[in-house]
Write a protein that binds this DNA or RNA. Structure first.
Lengths: 224, 224
DNA sequence: AGTATTTTTAAGATTTATTTAAGGTAGTCA
DNA sequence: TGACTACCTTAAATAAATCTTAAAAATACT
């Protein structure tokens, strides 16, 4: 989950970025509307925190511009009390939520979670490959009438394999995606989980398997 | 579809009206209870958004009054966190739904659509799943000939489970819906209430249960 | 005000997930 | 072949999430 903060008070912007990072998000901060617009257009952000009062191009213009460009990344407007009337315009222009300053970090985090959840609602529940189907909702892996519950790490790994079947995923890639970039996990952690997954795949009786590509990584394939 | 907003914060009231118009509804706003009552009595509205705290005549009195007059226009109560306890009374008095402030516009629109779908009729009193039945009026949970009274939070939780059976509801979702978006409650609060509910489900002898989906949330299921 | 009820807090018990570690297997290459 | 390396498997140790309970605090009721 990657967030963009557009806020001209640099101290506040950086503080927010810091808080968000501590809460497991990726966060970038820019300090004016034009930079914000450029960053948004990269399309890598999942959520934008947008101050209304900004030098150069104000927040509402940014919002209107991106919506006109059919960019529907969720936006939470940040506004001082005196700008309350702007909220009307903000909501018109297509913001998803607003947060009057000053706000508590708890509240901000709750709103972010709420928005994040909403985004997920529109996505498919299940990921499929051959006879396998993984439910994102229940974290259950199914093959025909058999199904088995996966733990969090097993689930994240399986998700990567299903999204990238037939492709060799390096151990480093898998480790960084599942354990995090700065994790202290070593290859053995991953190997243990590959072993767990193989056992479960076996029990399900699937025709797929996780193949070892020695020196490179693993890939999800069809047997034989 | 014509909506009436009764809300004393004029900025918010107007903002809401604006949003609703943007979304294809007709919307009027009034800023106190007595005006609201007068507008309702015209009978032209399909849905009323009613703030609880109002100058002059408060929201609950308005609601009770119109229901006594056999006006069954659906009502969504808007309430600040501090007025949360009024929700019980609101449900008793015949509100169809309630929305704790602050709420997101998406959520409001979703609720309106839900009510609109239900049609003009005064909403169903009970929510059912398998052998369970929850009465919105008395907040009693029934299973066959046994029934048990739920507290407000138990009720709200159970309502969510009944409306979304078989689906895993994340802890964050449950917390934000029941304790509010900006709640300071932690997971343990929820866990305690899940425990309470499980005890009551047990005492009722239902064949349903609340299943833990570790790392994700809870879901209402049939046993075994 | 006093009692009952609901909600929060806190701590210990329990269950489950994750890491660690050690010994085994199997490719690779001189 | 034999030494080396990458990889596999398993069990035990550790850590984390969740459950349960009781008591304290807040709130509603009479």
């Amino acid at each position: 989950m990657r967030l963009l903060i557009i806020e001209d008070e640099t101290a506040l912007a950086d503080a927010l970025a810091e808080i968000l990072k501590q809460n497991g998000y990726l966060a970038d901060a820019v300090y004016n509307g034009l930079d914000g617009l450029a960053y948004i257009r990269t399309g890598v952000y999942d959520l934008i925190l947008l101050d209304i009062m900004l030098p150069g191009m104000d927040g509402l213009s940014v919002l209107k511009t991106i919506r006109r460009e059919r960019i529907f990344t969720p936006v939470i407007l940040l506004s001082a009390k005196s700008e309350l009337s702007d909220i009307v315009n903000g909501l018109d222009a297509g913001s998803d939520d607003y947060l009057p300053k000053p706000f508590s970090t708890t509240e901000l985090l709750a709103r972010i979670r709420a928005i994040a959840r909403r985004g997920q609602q529109y996505s498919e529940d299940s990921l499929d490959f051959e006879d396998l189907s993984l439910s994102k909702n229940t974290m259950e892996l199914r093959c025909g009438k058999n199904s088995i519950k996966l733990g969090l790490k097993e689930f994240q790994l399986m998700e990567l394999f299903l999204r990238n079947s037939h492709q060799v995923l390096s151990k480093d890639l898998l480790l960084s995606k599942v354990w995090g970039l700065d994790a202290e996990a070593d290859y053995n952690n991953l190997e243990v989980y590959i072993s767990f997954l193989r056992q479960k795949l076996n029990n399900l009786g699937t025709k797929t398997c996780i193949r070892t590509n020695r020196g490179v990584g693993y890939s999800l394939e069809v047997n034989e």
